[in-house]
């Protein structure tokens, strides 16, 4: 079976240790996690986690079933890339070796709609949001100037249209 990236939306009860329960389950069952994001939701007491994992369909099925068994988990559902908005934010600290490089970097940033959040003589912080592939491509592009540090949020996602991830359906 084909290994690919899967995005999972998980609604959990907002209690101490929930993150440990979910991520611990992933670890001990040998499911590899690419990214995790967690935040509050519309409803008080309920948090949403977005997991990005790599694996084939059989693995995905097990992940979903095992996570669903956790008492603190209200709902888990896959967010298919074709039907979802998937976004990530990245901060990229880059060195500026020369004046020419600075102009190149500014140009690249304009094309990718990256914002320059900080600028000194020797470095800049570029802020970029978008699909993770776009961020990958941008990092690849500016790598030659010397990347000092990268902070990525991991993906967050939401299904398109009127459908919502909630505990009612």
């Amino acid at each position: 079976m084909k290994t690919q990236r899967h995005i999972l939306g998980i609604l959990v009860e907002d209690q101490p240790g929930v993150m440990a329960r979910v991520s611990g389950l992933f670890a001990r069952r040998g499911f590899n996690i690419n990214t995790i994001t967690v935040g509050s939701t519309r409803d008080a007491g309920i948090s949403k986690m977005i997991f990005s994992i790599n694996g084939d369909d059989k693995l995905l099925e097990q992940v979903v079933k095992q996570v669903n068994k956790l008492v603190s988990v209200i709902k888990i559902s896959e967010l298919k890339p074709s039907d979802s908005i998937i976004k990530e934010i990245a901060l990229i600290k880059i060195s500026i070796p020369s004046e020419n490089a600075k102009f190149d970097i500014i140009k690249c940033s304009e094309i990718y709609k990256a914002k320059i959040s900080d600028l000194t003589h020797k470095s800049a912080i570029l802020q970029l949001h978008g699909e993770p592939e776009k961020i990958d491509a941008f990092i690849h592009l500016v790598k030659r100037y010397g990347i000092k540090e990268v902070s990525r949020t991991g993906v967050t996602a939401m299904s398109r249209g009127i459908c919502v991830l909630n505990n009612k359906n």
């Binding site: 059989k58 099925e61 097990q62 079933k65 095992q66 669903n68 068994k69």
Partner: peptide
């Protein structure tokens, strides 16, 4: 009764 056991 445990769906996770089916097909595991």
């Amino acid at each position: 009764i445990d769906p996770a056991e089916i097909g595991k």
